[in-house]
């Protein structure tokens, strides 16, 4: 099929789909006029029941925690799949890491970039830890903080080179962290079953609302997800970087 026929066909069906979607969606409650009831029920219950002021975290890791467990394993499986598919193939070999750019030399890192990296690495790491640890009190949480934790290490890469990044983030350590994060969440969720209680029941004391150690399992789950997401994203990007920097085809020079 040529391009113009493809476009014509697309626009024809897109117009039908757009019409149907708008016709269906415009009967929803109008924008800014949320009627509830689920959100309001949770917001009125999350302090008395769970001792956490953070509505989103209470939904993610408690009221809807079972979904999040599944989501976490989607993430885990995707990371495992990426690592499996990007392993060294038979027709490939590993070389000394070398940044390659077609047709031009890589300039040395300037001292301004190095200084920015030195400043940003601890700042991003600290902010990531804070987001994870206070996930049940303030906006943030394991997923957001985990991504930020992973990002922090790329300031090392940007202000230095690939070898320093691998020194900071050894693969086998990340593997362990990834598995530990996933297992802590899964075991924490199933532990009540062993004690003949409902799945994902809070076993830890709920504590005083607003303090760091409160809301039962919530901070534990936030930390385990934070560790898993951070390690997972580092593993993902490390696998892609390795393809560009280390792995060469047997036939290439």
């Amino acid at each position: 099929m040529n391009d113009s026929a493809r476009r014509t066909l697309f626009f024809f069906f897109a117009a039908i789909l757009a019409g149907a979607l708008v016709a269906a969606l415009r009967h929803l409650p109008s924008f800014g006029d949320y009627q509830g009831p689920y959100g309001d029920v949770i917001l009125s219950g999350c302090i008395p029941q769970r001792h956490t002021p953070q509505g989103v975290a209470a939904v993610t890791f408690d009221y809807r925690g079972f979904d999040t467990l599944g989501e976490e394993f989607i993430l885990f499986t995707a990371v495992a799949g990426v690592l499996l598919l990007l392993r060294q193939q038979q027709c490939e070999r590993q070389e000394k890491p070398r940044d390659c750019e077609l047709g031009r030399a890589i300039p040395a890192t300037s001292s301004a970039v190095l200084a920015a990296g030195l400043l940003m690495f601890p700042a991003a790491l600290l902010l990531g830890c804070s987001l994870v640890l206070h996930g049940h009190l303030t906006p943030g949480g394991g997923f957001q903080g985990g991504v930020l934790l992973a990002t922090a290490f790329y300031f090392v890469y940007l202000s230095s080179d690939y070898r320093d990044l691998t020194r900071f983030t050894p693969d086998h350590l990340l593997d362990y962290l990834e598995v530990t994060g996933a297992t802590t969440f899964a075991l924490g969720a199933t532990l009540p079953l062993v004690l003949n209680r409902p799945f994902m029941l809070n076993l830890l004391p709920l504590g005083k609302t607003g303090s760091l150690f409160s809301a039962g399992f919530l901070p534990l789950f936030n930390c385990s997800v934070g560790v898993e997401v951070g390690a997972g994203f580092l593993l993902l990007i490390a696998a892609f970087l390795k393809q560009v920097i280390v792995i060469r085809r047997e036939s290439d020079q």
């Binding site: 509505g55 989103v56 989501e71």
Partner: peptide, 17 residues
């Protein structure tokens, strides 16, 4: 509503991976 925000979070994580 916190429920849809939590759903959007799931959406983003699954989408990225």
């Amino acid at each position: 509503d916190p429920v849809v925000q939590s759903l959007a979070l799931t959406d983003i994580v699954v989408g990225a991976t």
